[in-house]
């Protein structure tokens, strides 16, 4: 019994060990010295730009849009801002929400397929600054007049809801 067990053990270890060695060899061979150099020297903002672009590439979306959005919202919006993302592509909007939630904390990031009829009353009831981000200009007509356009870029438009006094 011991011999058979030993033989089986060695056989499995031989197969898995060979596979592991091949996989480790491939990984070592695939190391990119330029990439490793950049990993050490790049600034944090550049890393964020790369990370966001990589996620956009995976979803076959236009690259650089989320980084632009992140930079613009970070510089234009207050920390207690409520940011609503309006997008026609649910997957990309969801990804943007997930990333911005982390990067722009403590701002709250929401996702909407489309604006509800009474959105203005609801937004004002929040009692906090409200921003609407349009991907691909879906709600322009509804927003003009009630919101101020604060940033316009590569198929992104950031609007700030005017307060009722405005």
């Amino acid at each position: 019994m011991n011999r058979l067990t030993g033989f089986l053990l060695l056989s499995v270890l031989f197969v898995t060990g060979t596979n592991s060695l091949i996989s480790l060899g491939k990984e070592l061979g695939a190391l990119d010295p330029v990439g490793l150099g950049e990993s050490i020297t790049l600034g944090e903002e550049d890393r964020i730009a790369r990370g966001l672009a990589l996620c956009e590439r995976k979803l076959s979306g236009p690259e650089g849009r989320e980084f632009e959005l992140y930079r613009s919202l970070r510089s234009h919006s207050e920390e207690d801002a409520q940011v609503f993302l309006l997008g026609s592509d649910p997957l990309r909007t969801l990804a943007a929400q997930s990333h911005l939630r982390i990067l722009l904390h403590p701002r709250t990031i929401w996702r909407l397929d489309r604006l509800p009829e009474d959105w203005r009353q609801k937004a004002n009831a929040l009692g906090k600054p409200v921003y609407l981000v349009e991907f691909d200009r879906t709600e322009r007509v509804a927003l003009e007049g009630t919101c101020a356009l604060i940033h316009s870029g590569r198929s992104i438009h950031i609007w700030r809801l005017r307060s009722e006094q405005d």
């Binding site: 070592l28 990993s39 790049l42 997930s98 982390i102």
Partner: peptide, 22 residues
Amino acid sequence: MRIIDASLFPVLIGDEADHWAM
């Protein structure tokens, strides 16, 4: 190398972002 290579990308997705970094 894995650790250095991963540092090219910030904490953005998955549990490391949603649970731990948050």
